[in-house]
């Protein structure tokens, strides 16, 4: 039997397979390069970048929970120019699209960061973070209200021809409304989901386990939430969806695709086992062969309801 076609498209960006990494769980590329063959990935999604250098939150920034973890890293990063100077030369050596996750403290920042990055050929697409639970300004403040959500996307759309992918907040009452708004504002795809606002308290010290007090839950505990959000969004929009949240096994990724995701991202699982991403790529291929499909696109949104 012929090998199935794993290639998928997100706007004009071609991915050789549907699998990328979740922003913030894979650094900027070099960190895992000894352990993961970056050229095998469908795309590399880097940690959030805003126009200026940002320090992020105090420590502790993470906390392990049953089956998952909380994080409140607070989007530290080198800023757009720092990213260009430090990481673009490295990333340009690989034959793999780079999705830059962008964010801003104020609305204009989203436009500024794209203006600063757009001339770089290595930057293939932008994932617009409208859903970070861990920064006071920006992040989910724009992502939980459809008006400001649409305005950010329109602003970014005005600055670039490259694919733009708003990342939706999970904690909204109607994800379909955001999916539709993204489509109307000119997005090429959407990604779902960011970590879910959450908290843990130490019963001896009576203090929150994170310095930021609250954080975002990621890993296997959020997967069923993410599957439902992807399924809901897929019914409201025809845009491709990048699905993520707790993918640890090939079966998890396949489930996202059946729910309606064209592409998937491996996040927290990279920390547990950096080989997860390879297993997920191979597992999707084996599943397609086993079920007699000729391409990855064949299984997207095939859930029977």
């Amino acid at each position: 039997m012929n090998k199935p076609n794993l290639e998928i498209k997100i706007g004009s960006m071609v991915m050789k397979n549907p699998v990328t990494v979740a922003s913030g769980t894979f650094g900027y590329g070099p960190e895992y390069a000894d352990l993961v063959d970056l050229n095998r990935l469908g795309a590399i999604t880097v940690k959030g970048i805003c126009p200026e250098e940002n320090l992020g939150n105090s420590t502790p920034r993470t906390f392990e929970t049953r089956g998952g973890m909380l994080n409140a890293i607070g989007l530290p990063g080198p800023g757009a120019q720092g990213f260009i100077d430090t990481y673009v030369p490295f990333l340009s050596h690989y034959d793999v699209p780079v999705i830059v996750n962008i964010w801003g403290k104020k609305m204009e920042d989203y436009g500024t960061v794209v203006e600063m990055l757009d001339a770089e050929d290595t930057v293939s697409a932008y994932e617009i973070n409208l859903s970070c639970p861990n920064v006071k300004e920006g992040g989910s403040a724009f992502g939980t209200d459809t008006d400001s959500f649409s305005r950010v996307i329109e602003l970014v759309r005005g600055k670039t021809q490259k694919p733009i992918i708003p990342k939706l907040a999970p904690n909204v009452s109607d994800i379909g409304a955001f999916a539709k708004a993204a489509e109307e504002a000119g997005a090429d795809a959407i990604s779902i989901m960011n970590s879910y606002p959450a908290m843990a308290i130490n019963i001896d010290t009576l203090r929150p386990e994170l310095a930021n007090r609250t954080g975002g839950l990621s890993g296997p505990p959020i997967k069923p939430i993410a599957i439902k959000l992807v399924w809901d969004a897929a019914q409201a929009t025809s845009l491709p969806i990048i699905g993520m949240g707790g993918i640890y096994e090939p079966a998890d990724a396949i489930e996202f695709m059946i729910a309606g995701a064209t592409s998937v991202a491996v996040g927290t699982a990279n920390f547990t086992d950096p080989t997860t991403i390879n297993r997920v790529i191979d597992g999707i291929e084996s599943y397609l062969i086993e079920k007699g499909h000729s391409s990855a696109a064949d299984i997207v949104g095939t859930v029977k309801t």
Binding site: G27, E31, T59, I73, F271, P274
Partner: peptide, 14 residues
């Protein structure tokens, strides 16, 4: 320091 990734990617152990 507590660590998560151990390879410099997650920015936990700063």
């Amino acid at each position: 320091e507590n660590m998560v990734c151990g390879v410099g990617a997650c920015l936990t152990c700063v």
